[in-house]
């Protein structure tokens, strides 16, 4: 079977940004806790575009990927939202994006329930759908959302949300080959983001082990070791937790492409793809990389890819 592949990533980042301090103040987060978000979690500013509809922000991410021939090849448009509804019925954000982009033949729908990890699942689903829909087709996967007030702006003890969006062009063969996808759903955290204090503490403990575990699952599945990973494109939550995951898994010191916390916030499911896009010039033929995300609920996912082109022999520079 021809492997699922990422053939391109487009990104839209709102020009306007807001200090996380303002967002945290607006949401009643006390000063002592605000310091954690700044000094330990690494958040600085969040990108926001309050007057702009979600569908326009998603379409802007996709436009650079679509010339006429690519547009004609799109069979499905899949939005992968964190929260499973983005508009009142019968509004349909995904159909509206397809319309804005002139994708008249593509079937638009949303794939959800893995929260911020849903976009990684959508890439996998895109490949499987293409495998059964004839040659030459491609799928457009969309990630990113509007920041609601309250719990839509701040995930307590974890992240401050931003409105960056990403579009991913998925095909079979070519591009960056998906080697595997591993996912785990933890029991006991289905009330998120409104967990009891006890459940919140339990999740903090379980999170590092589970995220490390799902990365190991992906590597074990294809017989690779932690040192074979050249890049990790992460979700932008608590920077400190990423350093602990790096130690637990044994990833290289410089492979985790952090930094988004400071400049754009946690942009729902778009984070790993925005990080990919930001670091695309660093990707060399044959590089292996992980796209990693964790979602409320709680589902954690690691997808392992190999960048297009032949990997140089070991020892070659």
């Amino acid at each position: 079977m021809t492997p699922t592949a990422i053939r391109g990533v487009g990104v839209y980042l709102p020009a306007a940004s807001e200090p996380v301090e303002d967002v945290l103040l607006r949401n009643g987060v006390p000063e002592q806790e605000r310091r954690y978000y700044r000094d330990f979690f690494g958040f600085g500013r969040v990108r926001r575009d309050p007057g702009r509809p979600l569908e326009e922000q998603l379409a802007d991410a996709a436009r650079p990927l679509l010339d006429a021939s690519v547009a004609a090849s799109i069979r499905y448009v899949i939005h992968a939202p964190t929260v499973q509804f983005t508009a009142p019925y019968p509004e349909a954000v995904t159909a509206r994006v397809a319309e804005l982009l002139g994708l008249d033949r593509a079937v638009p729908f949303a794939l959800s329930q893995h929260a911020c990890a849903s976009a990684l699942l959508a890439v996998e689903a895109a490949g499987l759908l293409l495998d059964r829909s004839g040659p030459g087709g491609q799928v457009l996967v969309l990630a990113g959302e509007k920041t609601f007030r309250g719990e839509g702006e701040v995930i307590e003890g974890s992240a401050v949300m931003g409105e960056g969006t990403a579009a991913v062009l998925v095909g079979r063969g070519g591009g960056d080959r998906m080697l595997t996808l591993a996912t785990r759903t933890l029991a006991g955290f289905h009330e998120a983001p409104f967990l009891t204090v006890e459940a919140e503490r339990a999740f903090t403990v379980a999170y590092i082990e589970a995220l490390s575990g799902v990365i190991r699952d992906a590597l074990d599945d294809v017989g690779l070791a932690a040192e074979d990973v050249d890049h990790v494109f992460p979700h932008n939550v608590n920077r400190m937790s990423w350093l602990r995951v790096r130690q637990q898994v044994g990833l290289g010191a410089e492979v985790i492409r952090l930094g988004g916390q400071a400049t754009r916030g946690h942009c729902f499911g778009a984070d790993p793809f925005i990080a990919w896009h930001e670091n695309r010039e660093r990707l060399r033929p044959g590089d292996r990389y992980l796209l990693v995300a964790a979602g409320l609920g709680a589902t954690l996912t690691a997808a392992l890819f190999e960048h297009g082109g032949a990997r140089p022999p070991d020892g070659a520079s």
Binding site: T94, F109, A110, Q113, H114, A187
Partner: peptide, 28 residues
């Protein structure tokens, strides 16, 4: 829409034996 932002697929993932993938399709 859901009455609250709830996680039915993770509920079933955690409770049913042998689940490898659980997700929802909507917006259509």
């Amino acid at each position: 829409t859901d009455a609250e932002a709830s996680w039915p697929a993770p509920v079933l993932s955690a409770q049913l034996p042998g689940v490898r993938r659980a997700f929802a399709v909507s917006d259509l």
